[in-house]
Design a protein around this nucleic acid. Structure first.
Lengths: 182, 182
DNA sequence: GTCTGCATGTAACTGGTTACATGATTAT
DNA sequence: ATAATCATGTAACCAGTTACATGCAGAC
């Protein structure tokens, strides 16, 4: 269970409201740990009750009030505790893999098109991560601290998406070969 | 929602009981779509009520009775319907990525050890998939039909695990470099 | 006599998704 | 007018996990 921790990490980088956190989870940290606003508000409330975060009501003109959350000492302690804990490996759960296994029941062209659609999705993601990487970290060898760590997370995305693209290409080629032979 | 479909696909390959399905979900199909026995029994019951599968009670000597499930016509129709549907891309959800981002709050050696632990996990998985690949599909270019599709799913695992291993290596090297410099 | 494997389940809980709801401001 | 953005939330539901429960057979 790590949405709590993802939020804590994000809040240590910069304090913010539930809404702002939702924006962050639409990009950057959210690429590796997704969350919707409902979930974020719920967890924020729970963490406030647990004393991991403190709230400050900030009135704004022209906009609704916002509740800005900051990490408390108890929250920082919780991050440290969690960091020292062993990390669960991610499980792959890919619907396309299950569909591929059932491809014999499908029109080959439909299956090939679906694999290609997925290839496009991953290629887009890959391009995005690579663009972010070049824009924000043009000189990787000079990086240290937080910037280095953020860069490494991005590199994880690049690596994963490259793998997916290669897989889609291999699968599409094999399905085409099979179709041609029959 | 695809556990239903993963089970249907597995049952079209071979009829079986909840227990047998649980075994299959501990390997092969389960590498790409995990499920516990409780979940499987529950979904099987639901699918029976929906008429997607039919049950046959099989008494055995020396062993408890088992309920062998087979896919009905309605179940086959459901597979076809699902195959034609667009497939949701998998979201990466990796706790290690979140931890990496918080690495500044951690002892560098602990973080490096954790990355290495994960590297070992993925290397093991990779070796397993490659061994399965060589054992079950020694001549990939000759494959067609179901065997080809199963092979392609395995290749997805190989591709994903290779990506993870490369990432762990890159991250560990960078963290070491950073540690050495400070 | 204790553990592993076969075989099936219930119950409580946690985490995540979808739908609904409100209300002001700014830009087209 | 109407849509988008800011900002917060409730409620119902679905999927998945953990713990508990039963009972027989065969191996060590």
């Amino acid at each position: 269970m790590a949405l709590e921790h993802a939020i804590l990490v994000s809040l240590t980088e910069r304090a913010g409201s539930g809404y702002e956190l939702t924006r962050r989870f639409d990009k950057s940290i959210g690429f590796f740990w997704g969350a919707t606003h409902q979930q974020i508000y719920r967890v924020l409330k729970r963490m406030d009750e647990a004393g991991w975060v403190a709230v400050e009501h900030v009135p704004q003109d022209g906009k609704p009030d916002k509740k800005v959350y900051t990490v408390t000492q108890a929250g920082a302690d919780e991050i440290a505790r969690w960091l020292a804990e062993p990390t669960a490996p991610p499980e792959l759960r890919d619907e396309l893999a299950v569909k591929l296994r059932a491809a014999a029941f499908s029109d080959p062209d439909v299956m090939i098109a679906e694999v290609e659609r997925r290839r496009a999705h991953h290629a887009e993601r890959l391009a995005l991560y690579e663009a972010m990487s070049e824009r924000d970290f043009p000189d990787p060898n000079a990086l240290t601290g937080s910037a280095l760590h953020q860069f490494l997370v991005l590199r994880g995305g690049v690596s994963a998406e490259r793998g997916f693209v290669a897989w889609c290409d291999e699968a599409a080629a094999a399905l085409r070969r099979e179709k041609g032979e029959s």
